Simulated assay, not measured.
Amino acid sequence: MATIQRVAELAGVSTATVSRALAGKSTVSAATRQRVEDAARQLGYVASATASSLASGRTRNVGMVMPFLGSWYYASVLKGAHRALADAGYDLTLYHLEDTTRHPRRRQRLFEEFLMRKRVDAFIAVSLELTAEELTRIHDLGKPMVGLGGPLEDVTTLSIDDRAVAELATSHLTSLGHRRIAYIGGSEGFDLDFHMPAHRRQGYEDALIAVGVTPDPAMRLAADFTIQGGHQATLQILGDPRLRPTAIFAASDEMAIGAVLAARSLGLRVPEDLSVVGIDGHELGAFFELTTVDQHPVEQGRLAALALLAELRQDTAAEGHANRALPYNLHVRKSTAVPPVRRRD
């Protein structure tokens, strides 16, 4: 039977060093940690979670709080975070806060009961704008937390500039010559935390104003960030003979895919008759040849997890908390082209 003593002998270190190395302590050098991990793997040794928790005061478990589970974006963030945490030897506990507007008690119980049970060493909050009271409760626990999606007081956060992302997507269309650009964004129900839909709408309007176009409220439609929602919104705007956009910017790739499908169902060609651009970097984007601003959600989850692991190792204690900008890039495919009027010139 593999024991910590046998691992220590094979690695040429003390049992205390084995314990610290397998716990991910920053006091152990990378070379020593690798030697210990190799020895543990060779012997088939797995540290007892209960014993490690009692000895170190840690559970080797991270809590991840998310508002939605069915969305591709959140699933991708979860995937990236889980991979990084698993590689570091941490389990992940998921806390779901969907529909807390109709059931506020669920959110209240999360912060008053579940998180207070101290079953996790740290937290990742995804797209949740926490109240001062909620932040105080977490800070009082003395456990690190990283936020993903927007700034949180005294918390390391990672976020994407939603206004800039939307401005880039819309500017891609205006650079092709489009001026009648419709916008499909989120409804009020999606504007609760960090106001992402509002920021993306602002970026869209900024790009139009930059080329001398006054934003038209009639060219803005609300949807629910799903393919079905984008499909319905597109049917509505393309069916109105007073509007006739030459391009659509959708605030998510799923809505953009819905727009492409709606255009095709009406006998329109993409991009010959209608250009479509989205935001996300959805895995289906390549299949639909969709131009998009890729925000790399799997990488977002990985970076959030790595930031949290660094705080658990106290590698970033001297740096303090900050809001770190996440990367994004325009990925041009075949769903966008010059508008049809220009093509006939």
Rank of each mutant, 00 (worst) to 15 (best):
L312S: 06
A88L: 07
I248P: 02
S265R: 09
L306C: 14
H178K: 08
F225Y: 13
P215L: 08
V7E: 00
I279W: 08
D161L: 15
W72C: 12
V213Q: 11
E311G: 06
P144E: 01
G63V: 13
G63T: 15
E9R: 02
I184C: 08
A250S: 01
M1E: 03
F111D: 02
G186F: 00
D294H: 08
H296L: 07
R137N: 05
A2M: 13
A310V: 01
W72Q: 09
T17S: 02
R180E: 03
R200N: 02
Y74H: 14
H139E: 00
L173H: 02
V13T: 01
A182L: 07
D273K: 03
T17K: 00
L148A: 10
Y90E: 08
M116R: 15
L78Y: 08
F190Y: 05
L330Y: 03
M219Y: 11
I248Y: 01
R313Y: 09
P151E: 04
D121Q: 04
G278W: 01
S14D: 05
I138W: 04
A125G: 15
A322G: 03
A23H: 10
G142C: 14
D253W: 02
N323I: 03
A88N: 12
G12W: 04
E311P: 07
A2T: 15
L110R: 11
Y204G: 01
R33G: 05
L10Q: 07
L330S: 06
R324I: 11
A325H: 04
R200G: 01
D240P: 05
D99M: 11
A262S: 07
G301N: 09
K334H: 02
T156M: 14
V7P: 00
A55I: 12
H139M: 03
T17P: 00
V260Y: 07
G89R: 14
A8Y: 02
A8T: 03
D140C: 02
G212E: 14
R137C: 04
H139F: 04
M1S: 08
T157Y: 02
R179P: 03
G212N: 15
V276L: 00
F288P: 00
I237Q: 05
Q5M: 04
Q42G: 13
L192M: 12
L176R: 03
E272D: 09
T214Q: 04
D280N: 05
V126E: 13
S26G: 01
T32P: 08
L43F: 05
V36S: 03
S19A: 14
L128C: 09
A210H: 11
R102E: 06
A30F: 10
V126Y: 13
T15D: 02
F114E: 06
S171C: 09
S29Q: 11
V338W: 03
H199D: 00
T136V: 00
Q300V: 10
L312K: 05
R6W: 05
K143E: 11
D216S: 09
A164N: 07
L176C: 04
L306G: 11
A132L: 01
D191N: 06
L152N: 01
A259M: 10
A305W: 13
F190V: 04
